[in-house]
Design a protein around this nucleic acid. Structure first.
Lengths: 78, 78
DNA sequence: TGAGTCAACGGACTTTAAGTGTCATTTTTG
DNA sequence: CAAAAATGACACTTAAAGTCCGTTGACTCA
C-alpha cells in the first residue's frame, strides 16, 4: 500500500464524491437515481476511471445537495 | 438584450475563464499554448459552447495560474 | 492605407466520454 | 452461516469531446 501515491484530478474528484455521498449515507445507486446517472458510472467516477464533464459533474453535485463552490473547497483542490 | 438570461454551467465557466485570462492580459492563443489546448477550443469554451471535461479544465486552470478551489470560489458557483 | 493581432465561427476529422449491460466480488445484516 | 445489498470491473455502442484547417470582421498603429 503506497501512501505516497499522487492523486490525479479524476481520483481527487472521485474521493470527494464518495466522501460527500457517505456523509449523506446513501448508496451509489441512490446517488445515481438522484443525479440521473447509471449506478456503474458512479462507481467508475468514484474510483477515478472516468474523465467526467462539467455538465455531468453538475448533476452529481446537485445530487449531493451541494455546489461547485463547496465541492472544490477542500485542501485537495488548492 | 435579455438581462435576465440564466447562465448554465458552461456559460459560467466560460465567463470565469475569460475574466481570469483578461486579468493576465493574455490572448486565447497564449492561453491555449500554456494549457496545450487548441486556440479554437478556448474560444468555444469561453462562449459556453463546450462541455469541457475535468482533465482539460484542469489544464486551463493551471494555464491561468490558479486552482480548482479558487476558480470556483465566486458567487456564480454557489 | 495596409500590415498585424485577436476573437468568432465553420467544417471535416479523430479521439474519447456518456451511457448501459453483465458478471464477479465484497460487505452488510438477519 | 446464508441471503441480500452494495460495490467493482470491464466491454461495448454512439454521441460528443477535442483537434486542425481555414475565413472573416473588428481593432490598433505605424
Amino acid at each position: 500500500m503506497n501512501l505516497y501515491r499522487v492523486m490525479n484530478i479524476k481520483n481527487k474528484i472521485g474521493v470527494r464524491i464518495k466522501l460527500l455521498r457517505n456523509d449523506l449515507k446513501i448508496s451509489q445507486e441512490e446517488l445515481g437515481f438522484r443525479s440521473n446517472i447509471d449506478r456503474t458510472y458512479i462507481t467508475d467516477v468514484e474510483n477515478g476511471r472516468r474523465n467526467i464533464s462539467v455538465e455531468v459533474l453538475e448533476r452529481v453535485i446537485k445530487g449531493l445537495n451541494t455546489t461547485f463552490n463547496d465541492f472544490f473547497n477542500t485542501q485537495d483542490f488548492k
